[in-house]
Design a protein around this nucleic acid. Structure first.
Lengths: 342, 342
DNA sequence: ATAATTTTTTTACGCGTGTAAATCTATAGA
DNA sequence: TCTATAGATTTACACGCGTAAAAAAATTAT
């Protein structure tokens, strides 16, 4: 093959297709007739041509870029979700742009800011929650089609998809109460994540429904280093002999991972068998929870469903001009994963 | 404030600065006189103007984008490095673009491909290693300034920065041999990562230097689910009574995490005290290794140094036109992190 | 104050594509 | 075979900024 093709004009004459038709094709391959599409695809293959990304997006009404913002990529849980979403976005013919807020509200806003200059067709956002700058999130979502997932922030975005904490925590409380001591709830006193508040409320209501007395173990700690927080506070709590034989339900797996580590160091046996000193359960089915000691009983969120729904809703918003439609919300059920710890 | 400013032309007349000067400023703020810079910055603040990203990059000689490709973002180890690098890139006034290869060579090439259309000033690449399509990596790095980190691939890129596996494994072997049974080496038979091969060689040479017989426990397994591979194979190995009292050095922490989990399930006591059945050590100081049961003795790579060196070399290459210079390589020493497992 | 130098302004063109409108052509249904 | 129509082509302009060259202005050195 000779030299590289630089412009669509060149490619047009070499492929025998007019430039406006090519332009149409690159915007949406399905918008041209099948025979034309095949000819173009052959020519692309043959000449290895790609339109100039910058020139292409400069005057497009809508780019093919979709922003994807997660609170913290260092958390393998979010890394996994991000991967799933990226995949779905690519399959839909869009170009994902992954950004992490690194646990900080300034970074979250900075991410949205830098996305704005990319003029994305839409943004999938898992907000930090309590720490978020809600006003700026609102401003942003009024300019760019935004779908929230994982954590809800009232009034932000055109849709929210997440887990039904009420159902999942209810399920777990029920399971734990049936199989041994009813659980105490291990959580941070001032959680960052809105789900944490919902889980607390869900725990209390689930316990009351069973006629049991809820008990909250509220630990202090700031930031995102949940394992460390769970470890440090867990060590203190565990040493109190009144928790011998207790069942502890952690607000999320990362706290549980820290707690399990503390229990191990203290020589406590964790598990569901009779001779154990403690039962521990978590929530989220963190990728490592299979390998904790003992393996962690937890709740798996239905992230396939959440991801697919988020992306499909995003596409619907992008396609249709129906930005007046009501804000849609849907919660998906969690699944009990019984392992050794409880 | 009135309506939004859309073009640099408008902004020029409102700010009293000519458009070419503004253009120069947005390319490099330091290239205009200080008094002008201040005036422009005030006007930006006042009018909230930002140049159009696409129009801006279309004709620039060099964009301010730097690609950042890691093998697998789901691995918190790489997520941490990526975060560090992103930070350094932003501090240098560049715009990082994070992509994960998800463990697959096709995705790795796809990532470089999509980066090419962004015309990045340079790319920081942690290659997959053995699985990589070396020819395509070479092709890419001849078109775009490329710096490799973490894993080396001969002849690709203009520099490589990573860890000195020889030093770090030597250090660990030495430590283990001094404090108990000399280690056996637990690794995958056909590792994906080039570092794994270097660690194997380093282990053998370190043992021989001490006059000890190296012993390789080569387990089979494909893909990136190292914890599972370490767990499954670890369980089999551990049951063999000839490993009672042994010391096992794992090629990386994720294998060790799986192995520790298997040991726990088998009821083996892992640790450095006399009554333990097994000592286990890892390599990489994985974020989770602090919370394994017991906490994992390992090697911390100097990723601050590797990151800083990689970025500064990248900038040097971008600035200087000295693309003829020799391929530079530098290895950084690892640090022994003594915890409970060995 | 004058000359030398740096910085800014003026002017003008180019980049590679999107898109609109009018015209032409291929396809399908009767 | 004719016609209605979807789809392709021709033509032409727009987008917002990069950049080059020459002239003007501001700063620094002498």
């Amino acid at each position: 093959m000779g030299r590289k093709i630089k412009t669509m004009e060149e490619f047009a004459s070499l492929s025998g297709i007019s430039r406006p038709t090519l332009s149409k094709f690159f915007n949406d391959a399905q918008s041209v007739k099948k025979s034309t599409r095949l000819k173009i695809e052959q020519a692309i293959e043959k000449h290895d041509y790609r339109p100039n990304f910058y020139a292409m997006n400069q005057n497009r009404r809508k780019t093919k870029n979709i922003g994807l913002v997660v609170p913290n990529l260092t958390d393998p849980f979010f890394a996994g979700i991000a991967r799933k979403l990226e995949e779905l976005i690519v399959l839909s013919g869009y170009n994902p742009l992954l950004l992490s807020s690194h646990g900080g509200p300034e970074q979250e806003i900075a991410n949205l800011d830098s996305l704005r200059s990319i003029k994305p067709a839409g943004v999938l956002l898992a907000p930090l929650g309590r720490a978020s700058n809600v006003k700026k999130l609102k401003d942003f979502s009024s300019l760019v089609p935004t779908v929230l997932f994982d954590a809800n922030v009232e009034g932000v975005g055109e849709a929210f998809f997440g887990s039904d904490n009420h159902q999942s925590i209810g399920l777990m409380v029920d399971y734990l109460a049936r199989t041994g001591q009813p659980p105490k709830f291990f959580e941070m006193k001032d959680p960052i994540n809105p789900n944490a508040y919902k889980r607390r409320a869900a725990y209390i209501s689930a316990m009351e429904k069973l006629g049991l007395e809820p008990e909250l173990l509220q630990i202090k700690g700031d930031g995102w280093n949940f394992e460390e927080i769970g470890f440090a506070s867990g060590r203190q709590i565990i040493q109190d002999s009144k928790y011998r034989g207790a069942t502890i339900l952690c607000s999320n797996d990362r706290l549980a991972i820290g707690l399990l580590s503390a229990a191990y160091e203290s020589g406590l046996r964790v598990g569901h068998s009779a001779e154990c000193d403690l039962r521990v359960a978590g929530h989220d089915d963190h990728p490592f929870s299979r390998y904790t000691c003992p393996s962690l009983t937890t709740i798996a969120q239905d992230y396939d469903a959440i991801g697919e729904r988020s992306v499909s809703e995003m596409l619907k918003i992008i396609d249709g001009a129906n930005r007046i439609a009501e804000r849609s919300e849907e919660l998906f059920e969690g699944r009990l994963v019984m392992r050794s710890s409880a």
